[in-house]
């Protein structure tokens, strides 16, 4: 960059400084210009506004499940019975392909919230089905238990629990 030969009488260090400054500022300007072009592909404000949903749980009877749509995916919300909770808690970690305690998967034991996408190849599992009476994926036969954990079949991991908070006893905000 700093080619100050050729019988040039000017101060070479000033010249170098100018070149470095120009190149440096040019690089900063380029990054500044490119960033909006990249960021525009990120979710827009209206999409982000829909990225969290609030669900009223009061209408779900014990033993019932509902499916709501969140970020384009089904989310299962199950009001578990005492028997289901007991069954979910009463499992040896060693029996689980993807060991996870039920208490970390359900903030309040009676409410189980899951992203309803099979971790195998993305099908939507059927509720209250399968050998463990949790969920059963009809595509390749993965069985999930009443905590949504994988017990049998090709799926590698448990059904994911989305981030959610209880706004009050009967309302949750997912996302």
């Amino acid at each position: 960059m700093a080619d100050s030969t050729g019988g040039d009488t000017h101060d070479p260090s000033r010249r170098d400084f100018l070149y470095v400054a120009a190149a440096g500022l040019g690089a900063v300007g380029t990054v500044g210009f490119v960033w909006p072009l990249v960021d525009q592909m990120n979710p827009s404000q209206d999409v982000l506004a829909l990225s969290s949903i609030e669900v009223d749980l009061s209408g779900i009877e014990v033993g019932q499940s509902i499916t709501v749509s969140w970020r384009g995916k089904p989310v299962f919300i199950r009001h578990r019975t005492e028997a289901e909770i007991a069954k979910a808690k009463d499992v040896a970690m060693a029996d689980l392909p993807d060991p996870e305690g039920d208490d970390v998967r359900a903030e309040k034991p009676q409410w189980l919230v899951l992203v309803g996408v099979c971790t195998h190849l993305g099908c939507v599992p059927l509720g209250q089905a399968g050998e463990y009476n949790g969920w059963f994926c009809p595509c390749h036969g993965s069985h999930y238990d009443t905590s949504g954990r994988i017990r049998k079949g090709p799926a590698p991991t448990n059904l994911p629990v989305p981030k959610y908070v209880f706004l009050d006893d009967n309302n949750i905000k997912i996302g």
Partner: peptide, 24 residues
């Protein structure tokens, strides 16, 4: 990437760019 060439949506999609798209 954000514009919709439809008579019913073109105007609104332009406003969508102006209001919601990052740096739109």
């Amino acid at each position: 990437m954000h514009y919709t060439p439809h008579a019913d949506m073109a105007f609104a999609s332009t406003e969508h760019i102006m209001r919601d798209v990052n740096y739109g």
